[in-house]
Structures are given as C-alpha cells and as structure tokens.
Amino acid sequence: MREIDVSVVTEAISEMCISVNHELSEDMRGALTRAKEMETSQTGRQVLDQLNENLKIAGEEMIPICQDTGMAVVFLEVGQEVHFTGGYIEDAVNEGVRKGYTEGYLRKSVVSDPIERKNTGDNTPAVIHYNIVSGDEVRITLAPKGFGSENMSRVFMLKPAQGIEGVKDAILTAVKDAGPNACPPMVVGVGVGGTFEKAAVLAKQALAEPVGSSTDKPQWAADLEKEMLDKVNGLGIGPAGLGGSVTAISVNVKSYATHIAGLPVAVNICCHVNRHITKII
C-alpha cells in the first residue's frame, strides 16, 4: 500500500490546468507546422500562419491559446495499491481545477445547472473519469474541452451489418456537419464498440492520443485512421472552414468489445487547440 496525500493531486492538477492552456503538446505543435506545408490554398496557409503565430504569443506572453479554456476533463487512473489520505479525492481534483483556473487567469465556463445556467465562478466541477488499474501509481490526464467543437460531436448506434463502411459514413457525417463551427483543422476522436457511453468515453480518450500514433490497436483501426484522414481532408473544408486541403490534423480511433446486436460509434471532434497533458504521481 502506497499512501498519497490528496494535496499532491490538487497541486498537480492546478499546474496542469495552467500549462495545458498556454502550450500545446509537442506532437500537436509539430502537426500544425507540417499542416502549413501540406495546405494548398493560400487562405488556408494564411490561417495556419496565424494559428502558429497565436501559439507563439500564447506561450511567450502567457495568454491562453484560446479564450475557451474549456471544461476540465480529468482521467484518473489509480493503482489499486494506492491509499489516498488527507481528504476526498474528488474534492482534491476540483480544488486543483479551481486553483488553476483562478490563479492562471483562465476563463470560467461552467454553469452549475444546464437549465438554470448560473456560472459557478471557478470552472468546477470537472468531469472526472476514474479507472482502477494495477500498481501503486496515479496517472492523471487533463484534457480541457472547448465547446465549439464539443457541440459538433455525435454518437451513432449502427447495426452490425453496417460494418466498417457504416463507421466511415458516421465519421464523414459528423465532420461535414461540424464544418467551420468546430474551428478546423480539427482532431477527430473516434470510439467504436462498447455501449452507448463507452463509445463516447473512448472517443474522448482517442483525442488525447499522440498525433499519428497507431500503436496497440487492431489493424483495421490503424488503416481506418489513415483512410479517414485522407477522406476528411478531401472534403475541402480547410483551415477555419474557409476552404483548403487541411481539414483535420489527425483521426484517432479506439475500440472495445461490443454486443452481438450493436455497433456503437462516437465521434468526438476537437478543434486545433487539442489540449491534453499527463502526469504520473
């Protein structure tokens, strides 16, 4: 049994909130630089120049990359040998979000009730996904999600007979509907299988995968990622939706076992500000 004081989690999350909103991961930065070289439209290249300049200003002057600093989504993978001390883990996570969003001059975008819509003033509560894993470590992934792209995300409950072609159609449908609203060039997270909610969680987790990484997945999923990136870019939506050849930076697919009667597909769309950071305690 390893004891971890929950204040360590609070501090880690607070720091992660601030850094993730000012600096993208290296793979995302590299992908946006490469996107400029791949873009064929002049307007598209201008937009990508602005986005790269925006990243530079954000990091150097500590201005958030995007004003929508998101709802904090936290994946907490807790080793079963860990014993949390000093308080309730969920309070500790929310305290970290509160501290990070307040001290980091990040926007408070959360309302306490979806109908009454009163802003909570500190960006809490976070959306927290817990997983018990083996070992004595805690792996925290923070992925703040902006809602311009979240609003364009979809879940499709396909029939098994629709197969891989149905999955492809679902992805294209979601991306076409998203169009300029989702701030392209986008990252497309796809969850295939499981149940209604499992597919959606897989799609969210897929967004946090490194760009272009296709390890540890079935061959069909790796093939699907490549084929759909070409197809999505063939739609011509382009950077900022103003036309061009770079509509998506990456298509990331995750899959899980499912029921004999179903083929759930979730498409979680993220803008080019695809923020995710992981820390192991």
Partner: peptide
Amino acid sequence: FAAIGGAGALLSK
C-alpha cells in the same frame, strides 16, 4: 465577418 477561431492570443493583441 469571421475572425479566426482559436487565435485568441493573437486577436487579443
């Protein structure tokens, strides 16, 4: 008019 979505640091200048 559209401003470039996700370029909030740049536009703030």
